[in-house]
Simulated scan of single mutants.
Amino acid sequence: MRTTSSSWALAIVHALEAEGIDCQALFAELGLSYAALHDPDARFPQDGMTRLWQRAVELSGNPAIGLNMVKVVRPASFNVVGYALMSSRTLKDGFARLVRYQRIIAEGADLSFRVLPDRYVLTLAIHGDSLPPTHQAAEASLAYTLTFVRWITGRPIRPLRVQLQGDAPADQQPYQVVFDAPLRFNAEGYALEFARADLEAPLPSANEALAQLHDRFAGDYLARFAGSRVTHQVRQILCRLLPQGEPKREVVAQELLLSERTLQRRLQEEGASFQQLLDDTRRELAGQYMAQPSLTLLEIAYLLGFADPSNFFRAFRRWFDCTPGEFRARG
């Protein structure tokens, strides 16, 4: 079951209350604990947050209610991740941390950060559990993130383009006001596209010592939160086995003292699959290895468990929309 942090849930509640919604009554209706919003370690079920958005739209009659998140921007809403982003050297470094620690904020959201020749692209995908996700949840995340980076930079950063799924609403004015950028509806996914100069400029709040401290806090939180989850354990085993070749599911199951069928079932319960975890782990490690100039591309391919380097090059292009050589050349 995917969960959302109490800090992000509280920000959503503040945004909905700005619309005049009685969230205390709404939480009681949905079987959610309103008091737990102020417990920093509390987590809320993904489906519960989905129902919250659905009822908020019904009660308010405002399908763009997710954009209200821009009214409640504060670092704590992103948990420790907000402070880690603020203390980063640049927004480029900050977004890398945001992607790395996204699961702390909400497990139902997947972020990726791509480097293109003329821009950076932060892409968001929202996943549901038994209920399909709402577009309000995704729009809230994009609107909040953009407003947050404008706040910490002190500059009115204007995206090159904002991509949104679904049909264009009859009234686009609220979206134009919040994003102040070209909008593309009916897109394949949700994304913010930025000029390279905007994300490479030094942040006024940059502090390397604090950034490292926040990294440690975030790492400790993830370890405490994810340690008992099968997905986390599988990732750890994959990281250890990959240099020996592509790990097989039956080998990982044996390491966990589980049958293959039980491993598959428990991964499904956590909204994951073995093949997706393998691909995600390879992608994350690839980004880390590419930052080490001492490693050759051939060595990286083998460290990621690719017996044939050509398979590594194909996978890398799929992950990052460029070749490994181009990736390194961009720094």
Score class of each variant (00 low, 15 high):
323 T>C: 01
298 L>A: 14
28 A>N: 10
87 S>R: 04
8 W>I: 14
309 P>R: 07
312 F>N: 05
274 F>P: 04
115 V>N: 04
225 F>W: 09
184 R>M: 04
186 N>A: 15
201 A>G: 06
125 A>V: 13
214 H>G: 04
169 P>K: 06
20 G>D: 08
150 R>E: 13
9 A>H: 03
246 E>Q: 02
23 C>G: 11
156 P>A: 07
141 S>D: 09
213 L>E: 11
270 E>G: 02
142 L>S: 03
95 F>L: 04
67 L>T: 07
131 L>M: 05
55 R>S: 10
306 F>Y: 13
198 D>L: 04
322 C>T: 09
224 R>Q: 12
14 H>F: 14
226 A>S: 14
144 Y>L: 05
125 A>F: 10
255 E>V: 12
130 S>E: 08
43 R>P: 11
298 L>I: 14
217 F>A: 00
1 M>S: 08
85 L>H: 11
164 L>V: 02
312 F>V: 01
286 A>T: 05
329 A>S: 04
235 R>T: 03
156 P>I: 09
129 D>A: 14
308 D>T: 07
245 G>P: 02
279 D>S: 13
167 D>G: 03
258 L>Q: 08
125 A>D: 12
30 L>I: 08
317 R>S: 06
16 L>V: 02
218 A>H: 07
262 T>P: 09
208 E>L: 15
236 Q>E: 14
220 D>M: 09
102 Q>C: 14
136 Q>V: 12
15 A>N: 06
259 S>V: 12
189 G>Y: 12
293 P>R: 11
253 A>V: 13
309 P>S: 08
135 H>Y: 08
254 Q>V: 07
218 A>Y: 03
301 A>Q: 01
57 V>A: 11
19 E>F: 10
98 L>Q: 13
184 R>V: 01
270 E>P: 00
289 Y>M: 11
89 R>K: 15
35 A>W: 07
274 F>N: 02
112 S>C: 12
236 Q>A: 13
198 D>N: 02
330 R>V: 01
289 Y>I: 06
258 L>Y: 08
177 V>H: 09
208 E>P: 13
